[in-house]
Simulated assay, not measured.
Amino acid sequence: MRLEQLQAFLSVAQTGSFQQAAKKCGVTQSTVSRQIQGLESELGLPLLHRGAQSKLTLAGDQLLPHVRKILTEWQDATQEINDLRAGKQPELCVAAIHSVCAHYLPPVLQKFCQLYPEVQLRVTSLGSDRSLKVLQDGLVDLAIVMNNPLLTSRSENVVDWLYNEPIQVLMSSEHPLASHGVVPWPELAKFPQVMFKDGYGMQRLVQDQFKSQGLDLKAVLELNTLDAFRGVIRQGEMISLLPRGALVDSLNDPSLAIRDLAAPEAKDMDPQLNLTREVVMVTTQDRLLIPPIANFRRLVHDSFISNIP
């Protein structure tokens, strides 16, 4: 069963004439006749009484409302696809890590809204692993995350590097480690640590680093908001390893202190390299065929490359 067969049948039903149906469909009368015959052969019953005025048979009368529905659905579907290709997208959904949402993404969002005022922009702050999962499930169009090659290296993904940022230590201004200009790794192991929850790339990064250093990680609390991190760490001896972008709101807080990490001491690691995280933007190849998504990607790339220190 083909769409042109259904269109031919509908046209004959509407006009009562094979000749008029052929004109309406832009084909020859013999083509319409073959299409109707093919449809009847597939269904196993005649659909039309042939004569000076073609009329529907019982089977044709049963089929007609379904054909109308199928062709209307197809017309609606093709119109939606054409709108999508033309950039008439009803919404664009983005998932991004907290620090990106708070500090780096707002200028991009403003520019995009000016370019596409008719597109509903939806931004959700999520951990990296969760952001990549909702991208994979088709719930968002782009994800800005801490890179995890195990999750980003799918064949359909397009991955754009945005920036690397150092991991630093957040502590109370009265904390014993605040006396250090640069905090040695063995000193970190002496204090309880606040971590991002499972599913956040930072948790995995910190755990892997402690393991590579042969140190025990005293993880005593898991949180998922930066406000909560600051509130807990102000209270006393807990510390946290966080990326620089997550510490912007802590810079001018007199109750908090931020210190750099010493270079890693593991034998298999380059002593010149401090701990960093890589932030990337991920979407899929098919999504980049849609103008609003492609332009959002361009805005992010241009803004981040020029503004991230």
Rank of each mutant, 00 (worst) to 15 (best):
E80W: 04
G44W: 02
V32W: 03
R34F: 09
V67M: 01
L109Y: 06
L47D: 05
L92T: 10
L39H: 00
C93E: 11
R34V: 07
Q37H: 09
T78M: 09
L58P: 00
W74P: 00
W74T: 11
G87E: 05
S99P: 04
L43N: 08
V32A: 04
L84M: 14
Q62N: 10
P107F: 02
T78H: 11
Q79M: 11
E40Q: 11
D76H: 12
T78G: 00
Q89H: 09
C101H: 01
P65C: 03
L84K: 11
L56K: 01
I81A: 14
R68C: 04
P90K: 06
D61T: 13
A59E: 05
A77C: 07
S33F: 08
G38I: 02
P106K: 02
I81F: 12
R50T: 09
W74L: 11
R50V: 06
V94W: 05
I70D: 08
K88E: 10
D83F: 09
L64Y: 13
H66A: 07
G60W: 01
Q89L: 14
G87W: 01
T78I: 09
E73M: 11
K111T: 12
K88G: 05
G38E: 02
L63T: 00
W74C: 02
Q114L: 11
T57L: 03
I70L: 14
P65T: 06
L64W: 06
F112E: 02
P106D: 05
L45K: 15
A86M: 10
D76R: 13
G87A: 06
T72V: 07
G87V: 04
L45W: 08
L43P: 00
G38Y: 03
A52S: 12
L58N: 07
H103V: 07
D61K: 15
W74V: 09
Y116T: 08
S33N: 08
E91A: 14
L47A: 03
C93Y: 07
T72C: 08
Q114S: 14
V100L: 03
L64G: 03
R34K: 14
S41W: 04
C101R: 03
S54F: 02
G51S: 01
E42R: 13
L43E: 05
V94N: 06
A95G: 08
D61C: 09
C113R: 15
V67R: 03
L58C: 01
N82A: 15
W74H: 13
S54C: 07
